[in-house]
Design a binder for these strands. Structure first.
Length: 432
RNA sequence: GGAGGAGUGGCCGAGUUGGUUGAAGGCGCACGACUCGAAAUCGUGUAUGCGAGGCAACUCGUAUCAAGGGUUCGAAUCCCUUCUCCUCCGCCA
């Protein structure tokens, strides 16, 4: 949720920037609710003051009939005003929640994902002296993939992964966990990119895969609900990303300044209904209802929020470089970054089977937009309380990461060469 | 799932025959004194949201004792619902 003060100070700018993200916000109406709310608050407070004064004068002795009558009168008036205040506050908050986070000034303005800007291309599309196959063809031939039985058990967009593909997945998990907890790796990324961020390594976390409605909503990731799985008879939803459970785990907490940043590397399965994508990306395991993902989450101070964002992107890139997968970095435009985002960057890996760059990573910087409703704050050494800033970014997705490896490392024989960086985690094997 | 107990400030912990309790005490933290410096000791201070006023330090009002609702002139204290934690029983990876 955005700070109402920003809207009071810059109503036109907020309307304009919201529009750039595709949200039509009636700022005048919102400010009207705000004003009404504040004046009612004043009236309610004044009445409560009267009530409290009467009650305080009662101490020890018994109240007179006159006092009780006066108290009852105030009580009735108060009930009426409090009711009014309650409904106006509800309208106010409902509308305020609809206001998206303001995009940072360097975010390209665009009306759809077509206007995302390619910021950087690293490596070149892999060349083959044979016709490269899709990951699905390779995986089926190797016996790594069974979607038919998954269709029987759970329906489309689910899969059983088997054999060396499973071992590859666990190798990737170990590799990424090792890197993100390694001090020298963190130091290297920071110095190579000239960043002024903490050099604290990441803490590995295996989170729960579900969360309550209230926290999901506070993260502002619950909508559109059509894309989420609800647990029947429980106030719980399956997460769409580890971000949702990692970001919300410190709700209602106050950090000491020295404790920040908090950096987590989480491993979790993510669940998406993929509403509205019927028939899209049906081959292989590119777009699944359930996929595992290594996700970075960072909670920190506002003044280093943008640098932290760049830091997470630098890690994403470094890992791709160590795996030697060609990729491009996309600066997402205003329409394509999420509602709570101030900035958003995607990494797209080269997928020889599709002859295209396809999205593998996202990095999101939310400023204090998410943490405001989560009530995650920091007590500065000066004693001031501030809302923290949140960043999240994919470390590596375990559906599309392996796809990129399989397709870029395939051989004419239909084998897959194991990236050198992963061999120590694959028993030294060079091919699978 | 059944029976019982409990949720108070950054943390621990008083306070439940309703009435100066935002809340004793301790820890922690901040500042100061002492010290070459530190520890120990002593002193002072130390919750947050909302509203109003002020450039500001801050002041005033109001709310908050798990959350929501109720009873009452008045609720941390009484009632209801929900959530969470603990103990025992049952079930179970």
């Amino acid at each position: 949720m955005i700070d109402i003060q920003i809207i009071r100070d810059n109503p036109e700018l907020v309307a304009e920037k919201s529009k750039q993200k595709g949200y039509d916000i009636d700022v005048t109406q919102l400010l009207g609710f705000d004003e009404k709310r504040r004046s009612l608050q004043g009236e309610v407070d004044a009445l409560r003051q009267q009530r409290n004064e009467i009650a305080a004068s009662m101490k020890g002795g018994k109240p007179s009939d006159e006092m009780i009558a006066k108290g009852k009168e105030i009580k009735d008036q108060l009930a009426d005003l409090e009711h009014q205040l309650g409904s106006i506050e509800q309208e106010f908050i409902d509308l305020l929640k609809k206001v998206p986070n303001m995009p940072a000034d360097d975010v390209p303005v665009g009306a759809s994902e077509d206007e995302n800007v390619v910021a950087k291309i690293v490596g070149e599309p892999t060349k083959f002296d044979f016709e490269p196959k899709s990951h699905a063809d390779i995986a089926y031939a190797k016996g790594w993939l069974d979607k038919e039985r998954a269709a029987k058990v759970t329906g489309p967009r689910f899969a059983y992964l088997k054999g060396d593909l499973v071992k590859l997945q666990f190798a990737i998990i170990q590799f990424v966990m090792d890197k993100l907890t390694d001090q020298s790796f963190i130091d290297e990324v920071i110095s190579e990119n000239n960043l002024s961020v903490s050099n604290k390594p990441f803490l590995p976390v295996l989170p729960p895969f579900m969360l309550r409605t209230e926290l999901y909503d506070a993260m502002d990731r619950l909508e559109p609900r059509d894309d989420r799985y609800k647990i029947e008879d429980e106030d719980l939803w399956l997460q769409g990303s580890a971000e949702h459970v990692l970001g919300s785990m410190h709700a209602d907490e106050v950090f000491q300044e020295a404790e920040l940043p908090i950096r987590y590397i989480g491993y979790a399965s993510s669940f998406r209904r993929e509403a509205g994508t019927y028939g899209k990306d049906m081959e292989g395991i590119f777009r699944m209802h359930q996929f595992d993902k290594l996700e970075m989450e960072s909670l920190g101070l506002g003044e280093v929020g943008t640098d932290e964002h760049l830091f997470l992107i630098a890690i994403q890139e470094k890992i791709m470089q160590l795996l030697e997968i060609p990729y491009q970095v996309l600066s997402k435009c205003t329409a394509d970054i999420g509602k709570p985002n101030a900035r958003g960057v995607d990494i797209e890996a080269w997928m020889p089977g599709q002859q295209k760059y396809r999205e593998t990573h996202t990095a999101d910087y939310m400023t204090n937009y998410q943490a405001r409703r989560l009530k995650t704050r920091v007590k500065r050494t000066s004693g001031e309380l501030e809302i923290i800033h949140t960043n999240d970014a994919t470390a590596l997705p375990l559906s599309r990461g392996p796809i990129a490896i399989i397709e870029n490392y395939q051989t004419a024989e239909g084998d897959v060469v194991v990236p050198e960086a992963l061999r120590p985690y694959m028993g030294g094997r060079e091919r699978i």
